[in-house]
Structure formats: C-alpha cells, structure tokens
Nucleic acid binder design. Sequence first.
DNA 1: ATTCTTATTAGTAATCATTATTGTTACTGA
DNA 2: TCAGTAACAATAATGATTACTAATAAGAAT
Lengths: 147, 147
Amino acid sequence: MRTGEFQRNTRQRQVILEELCRLKSHPTAAELHRIVRKQLPKISLGTIYRNLDILVRNDMIQKLDFGGSEARFDGNPNRHYHLRCIQCGRVDDIKDLSTGIMLDDFKRLKGYKIHHLRIEFLGICPECQKKAKTDNKDVRRKKKNRR
Amino acid sequence: MRTGEFQRNTRQRQVILEELCRLKSHPTAAELHRIVRKQLPKISLGTIYRNLDILVRNDMIQKLDFGGSEARFDGNPNRHYHLRCIQCGRVDDIKDLSTGIMLDDFKRLKGYKIHHLRIEFLGICPECQKKAKTDNKDVRRKKKNRR
DNA sequence: ATTCTTATTAGTAATCATTATTGTTACTGA
DNA sequence: TCAGTAACAATAATGATTACTAATAAGAAT
Ligand SMILES: [Mn+2]
Ligand SMILES: [Mn+2]
Ligand SMILES: [Zn+2]
Ligand SMILES: [Zn+2]
C-alpha cells in the first residue's frame, strides 16, 4: 500500500509533486496553486487539494497542519521537526535533532529568537484501543458468516 | 497589562472561566457552549468565542490549536504538554516532563499507544526581527515628532 | 436609589479554508 | 472501437470562526 492508490499519473499530479519537492519552503495549497499555474494555467485549486490529499495518504509528502490558518505542505515525507515564525508564519526545517532534546537548552536556532516549544504525543487512547479490538472481532465474524 | 483588558465582570465570562477550569478535559468552544448553557440557557456561541479569546489574551487560559478541525481550550494557563488521540481527538495532560525528554524513549503514556511525537519550535524569524527593529525606530520618531 | 455611559451581549450575517458535487475529458484495457 | 471510470475544471456546500448591530446591563456618577 506504499504507492499505488492512484493509477493514472496525470501531468497535474506530476507538476504538483515536482514543484512541492523543489521548494524548500513549506507552501500552502493556495501558494502552490499560484506556482503550479505557471506551468498549467487552468489547473483548479480543488485539484491541488485533491492531489495533495492523495499524496499525503500515499506517504509521498506530508501535511503540516498547525492550527490557526492554512495548512502547509512538505515535500519531504520523512518525520522531522520544524521552526515556525509566530509573526509571519514562515516554516523552516530542523535537521540536527535526532537523539534527544533538553528543554530550556536552546535560545537561538537558525537565527530565530525562540519563544517556546510545542510538544504533542500523538497516539491511540485506551478507549479507542478497546473499540478497535471489538471492531476487529465484528469484522472476523462477518467474514465467517459471509461464506 | 497582565489583567485588565476587560473592565466589566459579566456573569457570562465568570461561568465560562469557572466551567473551563473545573473540567479536566480540553473542550472545544461548542462543547463548552453546551455545558455553559445549562446555567445560562440563552448565551450565544459568539459570546463563548469572544470571551475565550479575551481570556487567552489575558493569559488566564490557553488555546490548543491543533490543526484539522476545532480548537480546544485549556483552563490551565501554564505551559505543559499534551497527549492527543488521533482517532477520537481526546486530549490529556502530561505532567511529568519537566527537565528533558529523549525521543524514541517512550512507547506508552497513560495507557495511550503512542504513534509519534510532534515538536515545533516557535519564535521570531530573522526577517521579522529586523522588521521589528525598524518599526520600533519609526515609533520612536513619531513620538518625538508628536510633541 | 436613579440616571447615565458604554462595554458587552444575543442573534445573525459574513468570511475563509477546505471538501463535495457535477458535468466533462481523457486514459485504459478488452 | 468502445465501455468503464479516474481525474479534471468549475462551482456549490460545509463548517469553524469572526464581524456586525441593535438591545441590554455593569458599574460609575449623581
Ligand atoms: Mn519540512
Ligand atoms: Mn492541558
Ligand atoms: Zn517571520
Ligand atoms: Zn481515542
């Protein structure tokens, strides 16, 4: 399931992926639309969104969904961390953060004046784990009954 | 400028703050609306949003703005970290994370099955720092000219 | 207490990013 | 050649949040 959700390799999707990967910035869908339109003048914003979504689901890019306003997209599908400007919204990559970080052990990074650090652990809560188990049982039962 | 943006202590604002602080969950504006309406049946959703915004600006609560859909609000204004379920959206607090964390040094936390960790450094980028400096100069010049 | 000022409210409309729908176009495989 | 359908452009719908406006009420002044 890595690659292969989509079966037609359209010019639109090619250009969207190319341009996103070429950019080191982390553009919004609208920004990417403006850029891609230079090559494909009549591509619609809906097509940008639809393809970005497909590319995300296929782990070829990632969506950086900070709250607030527009989501941003990243041509690099590998997990890495970011620096974000709380004034203009600009987003930069952080490369050297592999083994561990100590809080309050930073002040400047790439010329940024750091205000704070946001950390979230993302996972499945106990209730949802339970639910997943019973759901699986249901699926097995249904499969059995089907034949 | 800590407290004192608002000068009238309305019943609406009191109840909103009380209920939010009483809850250990991290409700959305709509959820809080439903709860507060038990005491104030005709309070409008706009009033909830307006007051939450004011309370955030006065550092009395905080807004947890994960991307995706609704923002959540936290009666605890002090910086702390969160566990979030990527299935149902539930948000829990993490208490014991004061000195440092090691990446890949966790698997379970409060019964959650952790999938990944989100880290963002938030600050002011070099360009915005420059801009702030020149802006300050402008302000000083204007003040000087005013008298 | 009564009046006065105006911050705040309830209700509603507007905004804006994103998603869904629709009719059309263009691959694909038989 | 042609049926089936992925993907498209154009446009409408959705949903969270913000803005607007006339009415209300908190708190000061009288
Ligand atoms: Mn990146
Ligand atoms: Mn919390
Ligand atoms: Zn900036
Ligand atoms: Zn859950």
